[in-house]
Write a protein that binds this DNA or RNA. Sequence first.
DNA 1: CGATGAACTTACCAGTCAGTAAATTACCCT
DNA 2: AGGGTAATTTACTGACTGGTAAGTTCATCG
Lengths: 207, 207
Amino acid sequence: MTMLPTRAGTKGMPRAERERQVLAAATEEFGRRGYEATTMATVAARVGVTKPLLHQYFGSKQDLFLGCLEPVGDRLLKAVRTAMADHDNGAPPTPLRVLRALFDALDGQREAWFVLYDPSLPPGSEAAHRAAHYRDAIDELAATGTADLLHSTGSDDPLDADALKYAWRGLCTTLVRWWIEHPDQTPEAMAGRCARIFAIARAVDPG
Amino acid sequence: MTMLPTRAGTKGMPRAERERQVLAAATEEFGRRGYEATTMATVAARVGVTKPLLHQYFGSKQDLFLGCLEPVGDRLLKAVRTAMADHDNGAPPTPLRVLRALFDALDGQREAWFVLYDPSLPPGSEAAHRAAHYRDAIDELAATGTADLLHSTGSDDPLDADALKYAWRGLCTTLVRWWIEHPDQTPEAMAGRCARIFAIARAVDPG
DNA sequence: CGATGAACTTACCAGTCAGTAAATTACCCT
DNA sequence: AGGGTAATTTACTGACTGGTAAGTTCATCG
């Protein structure tokens, strides 16, 4: 009676494997086109399947999105957390360590970043709230990293802190987008490029 | 016979004035929600009018968008051009002058920025091409501004230059988005905040 | 073989949106 | 008054999309 992988009457592919396929395709599609522009039919077509199957497996379009969001959010959050943690002497400065961690976490599925940072999520929806939750968690980590920086420059304006957090988030997003447009670049190459760009930025206003 | 402002048989409002109203409402709506999420009916409703009038006056949805894009693109391009030009001694460094010019040009209609930087334009469409044209024109100005900076740090990698251009464009977009979420901030206050944030960024990696 | 049940599809409904055709309103001029 | 015309609306079509109901295929097991 121990027929747990019973597989009685199976046409096509086992459900678990198909679900993985769908999640991978949906993550890429949601990330590339955004939630609103992504249709269930195109996601289904990418996997060689029809729309009703997606609804049977995942429920609504928003449920499918949530199924993509959770693993991506967890992966990125964990990556940033560990990157912020190991700061032994001789390591690159924190921002560069975080970027390197993001590039490593996103390698092989770079569009996943925009599943978290999708501006076309229905406002007020569960999906929007959950995505915002992940973004805020990552932001808070960044905020602890910049708090001392703010004090060192004498600024204690909370709006400055908020804008800085926002700018950092936007910079990461921009760099990932550039990376997506240059598929041949390795995470390591990206990290090096970011270091050089930071150096250039520091050279502004030499007077 | 010189009855140029003839206004024979006019119900409601003269066409030119209505068109200005529609363009203002559409610019805000396109900028805020993006092209795809904006519907002709909601734009019409904002002006207290119905959808067919918009089609009669402007043609298709894309034509209406182009009608919004052109003045905004011209205004921003001109603002950046003049900001890059007047570099007398004692003035703030170029990036800050450009930002200040952008904030001034966008004051009163901040969402207009995202008419140029709308990611939801139908790929390959006339609208997408024209928007890209304006973006590229602005980018090229920024590129001439950063060319010497790149050489001064010894980097002659063209990919570095491209990534820097891209990062700068993204940073501007991010700052405008933050500004939109803080409506009480004046352009001057924003410029000052950006200067402080730049100073903070320069303080990274003091080792 | 023949039944079972998971994998999957065809055919459909309901809602939304861009776009159009045909009227209708209301101001102006004679 | 009443004809002309710009401004505007009502009523509609067609395409597309999220979602559902009911059926069909087919490997396995008895």
